[in-house]
Design a protein around this nucleic acid. Structure first.
Length: 271
DNA sequence: AGATGTCCCTGGAAGC
DNA sequence: TGCTTCCAGGGACATC
């Protein structure tokens, strides 16, 4: 499932190639999570300026307006000069003078949304509450500590909420908490400043490493250029319920927090 | 306002 | 073997 590293790797794999392309046609498949928000044919003739990213959203900036793409949990993008006819799970084609960008998303949790400006109501609704980018200088330790101090729910849930920091999904939340030696059930506000700082560092490390390795998480991720077989990140706890901890050999525990699976080592991660 | 629960969707795995 | 059930996940939205 695409988390921030996969989204970033996807972005890098086609951002340069699609630059300055002119939109020739837009094809829609089955409905995605949200409606496109404009008539598809109204995009024809526009020029792609750049492809950015905010959290897990890709931002395809045009000479007028921005197309936001979210991969949900099963989405992937391809960009190629020519693609085969769309299959049942291909729900969005942006045909341009330089190639076709295609969203493939079996579970349709993904989305493609057009906004005139990111400051539009829709843009603000989707991006306005997102926290700092973990791999930029905006991810400040003191600010992170301050945010945690203001929230009483479990640290794992606070990380997933995306306001303390964006892009930490279910897998990396468990992994970062393991790296920091923090039990996922600890209330965020109860973390000491040094422990919060350690968590900050762990988030930067785990996400930075995953991006450097080319987008790592489980299963069949491939970039928009179709390059597959990326390094599979070896998780320390995620998906390892009952198996021995790589550090201390205690069995990894599985609990549910807010309907989501959380994995941790009760010995290495202190309450 | 903050915390918590619910729902969207489908393929694959597990259970009967 | 063939059916049903469960599970995964991000995040908007509803409810307390």
């Amino acid at each position: 499932m695409p988390e921030l590293p996969e989204v970033e790797v996807t972005r890098r794999s086609f951002a340069h190639a699609i630059e300055n392309a002119t939109v020739q046609e837009v094809r829609l498949g089955k409905p995605l999570r949200w409606q496109l928000g404009c008539a598809p044919e109204s995009l024809v003739g526009r020029r792609v300026l750049s492809v950015g990213r905010r959290g897990k959203y890709l931002l395809i900036g045009m000479d007028h307006g921005v197309v936001l793409v979210h991969l949900g949990m099963s989405g992937s993008l391809r960009f190629a000069p020519a693609l085969p006819a769309a299959g049942v799970h291909d729900h969005f084609d942006l045909v341009t003078s330089l190639g076709t960008l295609r969203l493939h998303d079996p579970r349709r949790f993904g989305a493609v949304v057009y906004v005139d400006s990111l400051d539009d109501p829709v843009g603000l609704k989707l991006l306005g509450r997102l926290g700092p980018e973990p791999l930029s200088e905006t991810f400040d330790v003191a600010q992170f500590q301050g945010h945690l101090k203001r929230h009483q729910s479990a640290i794992k849930s606070v990380l997933l909420a995306g306001e303390a920091v964006v892009g930490v999904g279910n897998i990396y939340a468990s992994e970062a908490l393991f790296m920091a030696g923090i039990r996922p059930t600890v209330r965020a506000a109860r973390l000491s400043r040094p422990r919060a700082a350690r968590l900050h560092e762990a988030i930067v490390n785990v996400l930075g490493q995953a991006v450097a390795l080319g987008g790592s998480t489980l299963r069949d991720f491939s970039s928009a250029s179709g390059q597959a077989g990326y390094f599979q990140l070896q998780t320390m706890v995620y998906g390892r319920a009952g198996l021995p901890c790589h550090v201390c050999a205690s069995p990894v525990r599985l609990i549910k927090q807010g309907q989501r699976s959380t994995f941790y080592c009760a010995t290495c991660q202190k309450p």
